[in-house]
């Protein structure tokens, strides 16, 4: 396996065709809704904006509406109502312009397996009308950057899963998109390849000229890569903020206890005694209590005083899973 090294000394060619016409967010979504035939509401009137150069994550389980949102922004799914703009271009009325400045790495493989990797890149460059000489140098640069140089002249069918994924990322970048959509970019990959790809994407975010919107149901991906995260659940955005701010909502530490009886009754008891606030929550027999300004020792002592039949008590720092759990009542890993 060829290691992936992003050559930071050789930045990708900067865009030279920008003109100061109208300033816009990179992505702007207003009351966007998608109802599929049969009445399935996949996306229920969502709103958000993504600033230029930002890495924005849509975090949620399978079926939450992430891919439908990406589909509408890339004009492969028609919105039922609402509006969406990519670099100022309305995806419904100016789809060609919106597509011309964006690229997408889909969740499923989309490469032509019988063609060589180089030919796949070439087709993308031609369809996006990238200048041939620019495309040639860019293919060489991306091949080096993504560790594809040895592979490009082989049929894609002979690539491993990770190599094919890197090729798809290279293909999306060969047209120098201003907005890059990554739909579950690491799903289905083994852990080693996944971490290598996260490195690649992590280095892409260091380039301020590209705006990245990625969907994922992996918490570590969202926390590691995203400047801001929208948590999407059943087609609705239930929280939107920086990872740090989302975590801060649960305080610096929380207590987790496993009760032998009814967790809801235990939670009610803790709330009555002022130990648990409104943001404490239960999953099965596990009760999670954010501490906020209380100390762990004080909270644990108070829990003992409450005489709850708990089989275990522990403290830990909150994670995005706790945020998701507190907002939706389900663990992201279970829902995914």
């Amino acid at each position: 396996m060829t290691p992936i090294h992003l050559n930071e000394e050789k930045p990708m060619q900067s865009r030279s065709e920008s003109i100061p016409r109208v300033k816009q967010p990179a992505i702007s979504v207003r009351q966007l809704r998608k109802t599929y035939p049969g009445g399935v509401d996949a996306v229920k009137s969502i709103d958000f904006e993504v600033a230029a150069g930002e890495v924005f994550g849509l975090l949620g389980p399978n079926g939450a509406g992430k891919s439908t949102t990406i589909g509408m922004l890339t004009t492969t799914i028609a919105p039922t109502s609402g509006s969406a703009r990519v670099a100022g271009y309305d995806v419904a009325s100016e789809p060609l312009a919106a597509r011309s400045i964006s690229s997408v790495v889909f969740q499923e493989p989309v490469v032509d397996r019988t063609l060589a990797g180089r030919r796949n890149l070439d087709i993308h460059a031609r369809l996006w009308r990238t200048d041939p000489s620019v495309a040639r140098s860019r293919v060489g640069e991306l091949a080096e950057t993504l560790g594809l140089a040895e592979l490009l002249d082989r049929p894609v069918g002979s690539y491993s899963g990770g190599e094919r994924r890197r090729l798809e990322i290279a293909r999306a970048l060969v047209s120098e998109p201003q907005v890059l959509f990554l739909d579950e970019p690491t799903v289905g990959l083994d852990p080693r390849i996944r971490h290598e790809l996260l490195d690649v994407i992590g280095r892409l975010r260091d380039r301020s000229e590209i705006t990245i919107m990625l969907t994922t149901h992996y918490l570590d991906e969202a926390e590691r890569l995203c400047d801001r995260i929208a948590i999407i659940h059943a087609g609705k955005i239930v929280a939107l903020d920086t990872p740090r701010a989302l975590l801060a909502g649960l305080g610096h530490e929380l207590v987790e206890l496993r009760v032998n009886g009814d967790a809801a009754t235990a939670l009610s008891s803790l709330r009555t005694r002022g130990i648990a606030g409104d943001d404490a929550f239960t999953v099965g027999s596990t009760l999670t209590v954010p501490l906020h300004d209380r100390t762990a020792a004080h909270a644990i002592s108070a829990i003992h005083d409450a005489d709850l039949a708990a089989s275990s008590i522990s403290t830990r720092q909150p994670t995005l899973d706790d945020v998701y759990l507190q907002l939706t009542g389900a663990r992201l890993a279970d829902a995914a």
């Binding site: 865009r15 003109i19 967010p25 890495v55 670099a87």
Partner: peptide, 12 residues
């Protein structure tokens, strides 16, 4: 990442 809240519209 350097984030600017706005971006210039690219020339088609």
């Amino acid at each position: 990442t350097a984030i600017s809240p706005e971006m210039t519209l690219p020339r088609p």
